[in-house]
Design a protein around this nucleic acid. Structure first.
Lengths: 189, 189, 189, 189
DNA sequence: TATGAATGAGGGTTCATTCAT
DNA sequence: AATGAATGAACCCTCATTCAT
């Protein structure tokens, strides 16, 4: 009894994760506006199953990115605890953020869209990521390494935008441009 | 006979210009994916007329932005001719580019889209804008003011991305971020 | 063993009754086409349980209304046994029928629908209610109070229709219209 | 030029009328909630054509019934002008109304639905039909033939309901029941 | 040339129904 | 027996594109 119940719940969970993986992949290929049918097909489930797990596109999008966002949040705390200069900590954190944006998840495109279905994602970023980034900036400012004019939200939006890739503007280009942007955020001597 | 021919040609030309103006306005309001019907309606012409003048969306998009792009090209030449330091010239040119991107034309969004209908726009940028920008960069590099690693195409894509606005990330933010990016493009001392 | 068998059967019966109550409530609120899921949810059981007890919507609908219908049947016999004029007996019976139709059960809508899922309900009405009504009409005809042209089935359909309520046509309106219809069913002097 | 323009407009008008005819037929068979696709198919046009002519279901429904409604309105005026007793005029008008409801148009079902897509139709009835009926009732009341308690709106809803046909309750039954209802609306002696 | 009516593919969403556990 | 996850058919609606006039 408990076994078969557990087995069922496990299957449901597997389905949910298959959907998240499929959605992440499809979002990268087609953007967050990709047809729900495509996601269902990629996950190998029926259309209704997507709607069962994620009644609205917003919930699916949010679920896809939540985990990555939480990892970023955790990293910020970890870096602050390390005995390195705050400016370097910020740089390393931004590197990791870029890695997420660019490598596997299409978050960049997602962040810039005004689409109502992305409101929750935006909120999530505001609530979780911005404070994490702000703490690193504050440390950098306190150490005299970062220009106090720089705000976390704006910087993150800018980095997010710089990570929107395309033909002829690849990952390495985004990394380079972000690094240069950070140089411009240092405290003027 | 000649008169009525001339009159007809003039009417055709007027239609074309009304369409360009309407498309520019609609692109700003709704983005480059706006329904063709909206553009036709705004221009006061029939749907078929849009397709006659611009058989594909790409051609319409390209035509809309071509004029702005040519102004930028001309500005680059003008700035190079002025007796100012090349780094300042580049900064002023980028300022103007940002102005175009941000103020009236939604070019930012257009540039980052992977949509095949924007391929020609991309080509146009490559053909006309990149050389203009490259000439300013080259001058800056020659003067020892700009990092020789910076390439025109990448810089323009980055600036284009930084100019994708949204709620909480307005024109002034984009201008600020672009300025900081340029700081990061200076030759390392 | 006998106990647990009895207990199980009791639970099954409880489920069935919870479903009937839930369906009656949902039919009133949303009509007989309400989603099966809503009924399951209201009854606090799983979807499959609904299908086990009532394999088709028709069976559920019929079961919901059967009890009310039997009450009407019993009332007809009781009224015939009372020492009142047959015309008054018919009027009182119709009043009670209207009460059922209008007050709690949405039967009015159900009776007029051509939906195949309501065929059995229709049959039930034919088999049980029409004879009951016919007996009252026959008594009225015999007493010279009711027009012999009136047939039970037609009258019941008409009353059923008159009891389909809506904004601006409320219970009291239906009662009034039914009363006037009955006036028109009296024997012409 | 004028000819071909006229021909085109005529074709459009024919299409529109084919749609109205198809919709009327489909509404009778399946009710006003019938799939738009079925109406398009019956009319021999594409789906989009239905939406072009009637952007919402409400507009289609209203258009289907508007003509019949206006005929009824006109009839009321004509009957009032005739030298016949007002009670007879009302009876003849109601006969005509029943004819419309029952013969070709399924209006009965339409009138009782609370569906938002039928709001306009309801409004139309309120605005046009109810005053027409009320004028006949007023004349009957003034002549002492009609019970002053009877209101036009309620009577029309009742007649509408009585005209919802089904297996075993046909046109003749509806006519009979409506006639009896009218008897019940006479002034009590 | 210009028009705009017509078409139908495409994508969102709901819900009846099945079936493994 | 009960559960509820999964499925997919069926509808709705929008809009790019074609083409007769």
């Amino acid at each position: 009894m408990a076994d078969s119940l557990g087995a069922r719940q496990a299957a449901v969970q597997r389905n949910r994760e298959a959907l998240l993986a499929a959605a992440a992949a499809v979002f990268v290929e087609q953007g967050v506006q990709a047809p729900i049918r495509d996601i269902a097909g990629r996950a190998g489930v029926g259309l209704g199953t997507v709607y069962r797990h994620f009644p609205s596109r917003a919930e699916l999008v949010t679920a896809v990115y939540r985990h990555q966002i939480e990892e970023c949040v955790a990293l910020a705390a970890a870096l602050l605890a390390e005995p390195i200069p705050p400016g370097a900590a910020l740089a390393r954190w931004i590197d990791a953020f870029v890695e997420f944006l660019v490598t596997k998840h299409g978050l960049g495109v997602a962040l810039q869209s005004a689409d109502p279905s992305l409101l929750t994602l935006h909120t999530l970023m505001l609530d979780r990521l911005v404070p994490a980034c702000a703490s690193l900036i504050a440390a950098g400012v306190a150490a005299g390494e970062i220009d106090p004019e720089v705000t976390a939200y704006t910087l993150m939006r800018a980095v997010g935008n710089l990570c929107i890739l395309g033909a002829g503007y690849e990952r390495a280009d985004a990394q380079d441009m972000v690094a240069r942007l950070l140089v411009g955020c240092r405290r003027a001597p």
